[in-house]
Design a protein around this nucleic acid. Structure first.
Length: 273
DNA sequence: CTCATTTGACCTGA
DNA sequence: TCAGGTCAAATGAG
């Protein structure tokens, strides 16, 4: 995948977001919309800066998941890592940070020095089944409690709902295997359930969140996510496939009304950082 | 019964 | 040495 067209695309996106920002100031001016636009801009900035750092993707390729089974901590240095900020609007249905189309399982939580909120650690649900070593960390921002800092580590090597949804387009749902159904559950984002099980009882750090995923929205989201991944992982098996299918294939109005815009915004934030 | 979350202990790297 | 990251037993939910 060529770098320059990507740069052009991202730069254009940033400019468009700027225009959108001006528009919002003239018509409606809710602070939430404003912050969303700011996120678009910061995401684009991050993506651009990442693209200007050529060595980052190389570090990933030198990492092979097979030779670190016995020494899981050695991978910290070489794992691909990128972060993003996810804004949560308290008034909306969305109460937790949006997920990214993958199903995550929480495996730890730590109080971080100097941070008001603990950091939660998630790994791919399919870690055991498919050996997927992708992990992510979620931490609530100190200044803005509705802002989540999400740090991803490693690439997903598992087959996720993207492939599933494509399969569903062609055949009825009852054809699913057991494993496919497990993946489908990845779209009911339970990752941020707070104080549920265990001895918990503490306040819900990450309130529960359920994502109403229509087939159209799901596909769009996934396509966008993979497209974003391809920005930094050009050797992905899915690259060619995903590039050929445009992110907006499922809908005619990727930037239509405000509602769509909102969904799109968060998705972009997740994919471009 | 199975699976996810919680949480304290343990390990690693700076 | 210590903060951050991970493990795994205990526990709860479905």
């Amino acid at each position: 995948m060529e770098k320059r067209p990507l740069m052009n695309e991202l730069t254009q996106g940033r400019d468009l977001a700027n225009q959108l920002k001006d528009h919002l100031h003239k018509t409606v001016s809710p602070q939430t919309c404003d912050s969303l636009v700011e996120q678009i801009l910061s995401s684009y900035e991050n993506a651009l800066s990442m693209l200007n750092r050529p060595t980052q993707a190389d570090a990933v390729d030198s990492y092979s998941p097979h030779h670190c089974n016995t020494n899981v901590f050695k991978k910290r240095k070489t794992m691909e890592k990128w972060s993003e900020q996810v804004k949560v609007c308290s008034g909306s249905m969305v109460e937790g940070p949006l997920s990214d189309g993958y199903s995550w399982r929480k495996y730890g939580q730590k109080d971080i020095l100097g941070a008001n909120h603990p950091r939660a650690y998630y790994r791919c649900t399919h870690r055991n089944v498919q050996g997927c070593l992708a992990t992510k960390q979620v931490q609530r921002s100190d200044e803005d409690s509705s802002l989540f800092e999400v740090t991803y580590r490693g690439r997903h090597t598992c087959i996720q709902a993207t492939q599933l949804s494509k399969a569903l387009e062609k055949k009825p749902k009852k054809e699913e295997s057991v494993e496919e159904r497990r993946m489908d559950r990845g779209f009911s984002f339970k990752a941020y359930r707070g104080g549920g099980g265990g001895g918990g009882g503490e306040e819900a750090l990450f309130p529960s969140f359920s994502f109403a995923s229509t087939p159209i929205e799901t596909e769009k989201l996934e396509n966008l996510f993979y497209l974003g991944h391809n920005l930094q992982t050009s050797d992905s098996d899915l690259s060619d496939h995903m590039i050929n299918s445009t992110p907006t294939s499922a809908t005619n109005s990727p930037f239509g009304d405000l509602d769509l815009d909102f969904d799109f915004d968060v998705t972009e934030s997740e994919m471009f950082v």
